[in-house]
Design a protein around this nucleic acid. Sequence first.
DNA 1: CGCAGCAAAGTGAGCGCTAACATCACGACG
DNA 2: CGTCGTGATGTTAGCGCTCACTTTGCTGCG
Lengths: 326, 326
Amino acid sequence: MADVARLAGVSHQTVSRVINAPDGVRPEVRQRVEQAIKELRYQPNAAARALARQRTMNLGVVSIGTSQYGPATTLFGIAEAAREAGYATSLVSLAVIDRQHMKTALEHLVADSVAGIIVLAPVATAVTAVHGLSPDVPLVLFEPGVHDGVTSVAVDETLGARLATRHLLELGHDTVWHVSGPEGWLGTDARIRGWRAELAAARRVAHEVIAGDWSADSGYRVGQRIARDPEITAVFTANDQMALGLLLALREHGRAVNEISVVGFDDIPESAFYQPPLTTVRLDFTEVGHRCVDRLLELIRGEAPAPKPPVQPELVVRGSTAPPAN
Amino acid sequence: MADVARLAGVSHQTVSRVINAPDGVRPEVRQRVEQAIKELRYQPNAAARALARQRTMNLGVVSIGTSQYGPATTLFGIAEAAREAGYATSLVSLAVIDRQHMKTALEHLVADSVAGIIVLAPVATAVTAVHGLSPDVPLVLFEPGVHDGVTSVAVDETLGARLATRHLLELGHDTVWHVSGPEGWLGTDARIRGWRAELAAARRVAHEVIAGDWSADSGYRVGQRIARDPEITAVFTANDQMALGLLLALREHGRAVNEISVVGFDDIPESAFYQPPLTTVRLDFTEVGHRCVDRLLELIRGEAPAPKPPVQPELVVRGSTAPPAN
DNA sequence: CGCAGCAAAGTGAGCGCTAACATCACGACG
DNA sequence: CGTCGTGATGTTAGCGCTCACTTTGCTGCG
């Protein structure tokens, strides 16, 4: 910086002003400085700036360490939006999410003086851990199914689940069974709530939830049970992968689509090519990432955080659903 | 830090030594300092440390911005390994990979004074862009199919492709057709090479490569052509998603597995639940991530970089392959 | 013609740490 | 018994920037 100042014949402070302040420098001087910066290929030192300013241009992300479609896609959305806003992204991926690990992760990020933190771990333990911790840094939580939060970004997964259930009901099925995600995930609960609500609204029996764990394997195991039960004609699975496993089990038991309809959730790119192509609920995870960043930047700037409506899911009807056979 | 020093009755430098140096402090004093640190909940300021040391505990990752299984899984592997080594991960995701964008990304990272950079963009443009740039920071490149590189981590995808092709040949197929990935990806070339090499070794005809683009959709479109061609009995697709699309097209045309065998690549978790369950080649992307970090840390420490063998792929035989029908 | 008032530029301190060197105490050795 | 060596600790000076303040040089008005 000193070199730039010397070359431009100004003080280091003027250089700083050229870089940071939109005005307060005479156009002529500004141009001279910019010329010098270019000539010397000067790049400000982020560490020094962070030290002096007591904050960085870094956004921290604490993510659950799976390579699941949802979190992964959201993460890339965050990185993209952050970069557009001139921020870098600092990633901490957590295999185990409990209070202790969350604490360590947040402390790491705070020690790096990130400007804000996004917690991309839609599990109950993460939420409680964060609430018990509250570092003195703006923090945004991705909470599917939660609406109130000013400091959280939501997807209306409850609505998504209702859409899925309604579709099946409208097709003429008496009721819909639900294969849920694993316990502890916010999305699991939200989807169960939506499914229950829709059944209740239509005055249908809500059978007990069948628990899966997001994996295709769990869907397959559930499918083997379901295939043997002639009562079941319509199933809503909490994600597409479980639907895939379910579909395979059904096929192996010779049960066709017109006997058992299946609706998935997420609309992963492959689901359109399942056998049969999966009817599912589309979630725009990239958009979620963008919103997380938008909200966080509002918080960082200290703006009044306008509570935005949650991201809307959308039903995508394909070949895995049909009216009941009889 | 000053507070800690005061409380422990030592100089700030001694505190620094306790934190950074393994010895040079009397055990008694060390304990006193550690006690003070705990009591005051002191956490060293990363920015100040970076400024003084001229390097950070950050590893930069330039990743291609897709939420594809391979890059996403590798990324989490990197984040995990980095954290284990005490490093944070700084992510830049690139939608477009050309020289200009790569340059900007690297400059960003260098300006953040990262200790090293991992480029997770297995495309030709990324490789050339990086080679033309070479920032003065240790850099590791993920280059599938490349073996020589001391500064690169490889997966022996060529071998993987040979394994896939060999399996089909051993089953009794006359030859194997290949549906490749999009042009410009290193993995695409490596897989084509392996497939060709294996066919050549067995003295079989290598038909022209059918180009896909990784997507299930492209696999589906290719499948529609293949299904009509009675000559084709065995297909090796460059990833699992394309195999999925292919499988669907075959089914729609009433072609069963015992007519056309399909082998995929990657072994994504869902592939075991395709219809039929997919025979594929397993790639350990998490391991790739770990190796990238290991290699980078060697470079950072200035150690002699022992060239490790590439990550080995493994054939997983499932239901999508069978001897030819006749 | 003088001086207030203001914008533009400069000065100095300090952000929290580490590196390099200076100092100190203590024991061994000639 | 003095001197040197050694390991433990303290002191000082930045790292490269921004913040708060000061100085400079105008313009314009009474």
